[in-house]
Computed example of a mutant assay.
Amino acid sequence: MQRLQAAPDGPATRKMGAARRHVLVMGVSGCGKSTIGAMLAEALGLPFADADAFHPPENVERMSAGIPLTDADRWPWLDALGAWLAAEERGGIIACSALKRSYRDRLRGWVPGLAVVRLSGAPALIAARQGARAGHFMPPSLMASQFATLEPPGTDEEALALDIAAAPDAVAAEAARRLQV
């Protein structure tokens, strides 16, 4: 991961002097992206968006029916996310599964230098968290397809991996600390 430092007036910026900071909080459904992403955004003083809010109704209907999305389903959604990030003048944090490298590359097309926080955990823990959620359109039946699709960030991606076994506030605090190094 590229070294970062805290700016005198707020959020973390690159030592190279970039004025904006964009962070993707990624992982399979149920790993805590939305919760931890919102906490991280608050800690860094950046706006936050949950990728689920950007899905068109057709995508939500497919997932609600237990049908995994195709890449063709995802491209317009990822472009909407990238456009939101690019429009944020100070930077922003987005919670998005971004399971494939190509998805993260699509977002980087909008915001080069996108930092990635990958949340990972034991499948049993994630399944328990999914089972405890009420009213979410992503059914636990799609968890296996999420893990099968997952391509962890490569060594050439600005990324850090965090285990979700700890409490969400501790995971968010660790992410904030490591992003400000």
Rank of each mutant, 00 (worst) to 15 (best):
75 W>A: 06
23 V>L: 11
95 A>Q: 04
175 A>P: 05
32 G>R: 08
129 R>P: 01
26 M>Q: 09
135 G>C: 11
32 G>S: 07
12 A>T: 07
165 A>I: 01
164 I>E: 02
110 W>A: 15
8 P>L: 04
140 P>T: 06
49 A>G: 08
169 D>G: 02
159 A>H: 11
161 A>T: 15
76 P>F: 11
93 I>R: 06
12 A>V: 14
165 A>G: 12
131 G>R: 13
165 A>P: 00
43 A>F: 04
137 F>H: 14
63 M>Q: 04
86 A>C: 06
24 L>M: 06
160 L>W: 04
28 V>I: 09
53 A>K: 05
54 F>I: 10
85 L>A: 09
11 P>H: 15
88 E>G: 13
124 A>D: 14
86 A>Q: 07
44 L>V: 07
39 M>W: 00
91 G>C: 03
68 P>H: 03
50 D>H: 14
36 I>E: 01
41 A>F: 07
28 V>A: 07
64 S>H: 03
51 A>S: 14
95 A>W: 06
49 A>Q: 08
68 P>R: 02
157 E>L: 10
29 S>A: 15
147 F>H: 08
125 L>H: 04
128 A>G: 11
81 L>G: 15
113 G>H: 10
28 V>R: 13
46 L>H: 11
134 A>N: 10
146 Q>C: 08
1 M>H: 14
15 K>D: 00
153 P>F: 03
158 E>M: 04
56 P>Q: 12
94 I>F: 05
174 E>C: 07
158 E>L: 04
153 P>H: 05
141 S>N: 05
5 Q>G: 14
149 T>Q: 03
134 A>R: 15
152 P>L: 09
106 R>G: 02
27 G>C: 09
9 D>Y: 11
96 C>W: 07
18 A>F: 09
114 L>V: 12
130 Q>S: 10
121 G>I: 10
74 R>N: 02
140 P>K: 11
39 M>L: 15
19 A>V: 03
74 R>P: 00
33 K>E: 01
62 R>F: 04
111 V>P: 04
40 L>M: 09
13 T>R: 15
149 T>Y: 01
98 A>L: 08
22 H>C: 13
132 A>N: 13
62 R>K: 15
167 A>W: 00
58 E>Y: 02
117 V>E: 01
72 A>C: 00
111 V>K: 02
167 A>N: 01
29 S>Y: 04
13 T>Q: 14
122 A>G: 03
9 D>W: 12
164 I>T: 12
73 D>W: 02
83 A>K: 12
110 W>V: 05
23 V>E: 01
71 D>W: 09
43 A>P: 00
65 A>V: 04
22 H>N: 13
69 L>T: 03
70 T>C: 00
48 F>D: 02
156 D>C: 01
107 L>G: 03
180 Q>C: 15
5 Q>W: 10
11 P>S: 14
98 A>Y: 02
174 E>K: 10
31 C>Y: 02
97 S>E: 05
11 P>W: 15
79 D>C: 08
119 L>H: 06
54 F>V: 09
51 A>P: 02
52 D>I: 08
73 D>F: 04
171 V>S: 07
102 S>Y: 00
24 L>P: 00
15 K>Y: 10
52 D>H: 03
141 S>V: 10
67 I>G: 01
129 R>F: 06
127 A>F: 07
176 A>M: 11
41 A>K: 09
39 M>A: 14
69 L>M: 13
84 W>F: 12
104 R>A: 05
167 A>G: 00
7 A>K: 12
